[in-house]
Design a protein around this nucleic acid. Structure first.
Lengths: 120, 120
DNA sequence: TGTTGACCTAGAGTTACTCCAGCTTGGTAG
DNA sequence: CTACCAAGCTGGAGTAACTCTAGGTCAACA
């Protein structure tokens, strides 16, 4: 599959996919006879995982580390597990931030309602 | 209160607070006789709101717009409400992204467990 | 045959901080 | 009184993670 289709599937932009490749976040991507990139289903799975990690705030440095671990096979699974567990903890903190923000918005909106009612 | 205390209260860094001031996200901040910034309780409330909005991904452009609306009094409440409602919708989308990522991590971690058990 | 669309590379631009150099001020220890 | 330290100040450089642009190739279709 070509880059535009891969982008549609994983949710990253075409530019971001090429950028991630330059940064060493992707395995070597095959090229067709025309010199253009061809993405396998596995490549797209990996891109989708990366998209999910970056959407939830994993820094590229961590992603690069995580991507690097794959190159050394199953022996790096404990370390990979550690990275993902830490990110899972990060997800919880983000969820708290979301909840706090939702609370604040609720109060603000309530206050706007009160003010607008007063002036009617 | 001085900038370091304000930073502790709102959760933004000192640099970020000064940066937000330069960008016009803050009302005029009073200065003490020593020329240093003094933050009122209201200032800190506003900083805390900004911190919560940026932690949940509101772009500075939107924050600047939102901050600008305050300068024109209650007549801008409908627009301010619109901004906050849109951000509330954004929070939901973020929550979905968090959930999806948590699911993916769960599967990945499960797979690591399976592989590690196999090799024992 | 020519033009359209998808792809390519290298590099510049943008956003939102973050850090740094070099300065002033206020309080305290000798 | 002086020396020093912490906290603050400004202006500007540096960084992360994209995002966009210019200029070019190639395949396919009118």
């Amino acid at each position: 599959m070509r880059i535009s289709e891969a982008a549609r599937h994983c949710g990253l932009s075409i530019d971001t996919i090429r950028f991630y490749e330059r940064c060493g976040l992707l395995p070597p991507i095959e090229r067709g006879p025309d010199g253009q990139r061809r993405y396998s289903a596995l490549d797209v799975d990996w891109l989708t995982l990366l998209a999910s990690l970056r959407d939830t705030g994993m820094p590229m440095k961590t992603m690069r580390h995580f991507a690097g671990l794959y190159r050394y096979g199953d022996q790096t699974i404990p370390e990979r597990r550690k990275v993902l567990l830490e990110h899972a903890a990060h997800l919880e903190r983000q969820r708290d931030a979301l909840d706090r923000c939702a609370q604040i918005l609720k109060h603000k909106l309530q206050r706007y309602d009160d003010i607008t009612e007063d002036t009617q």
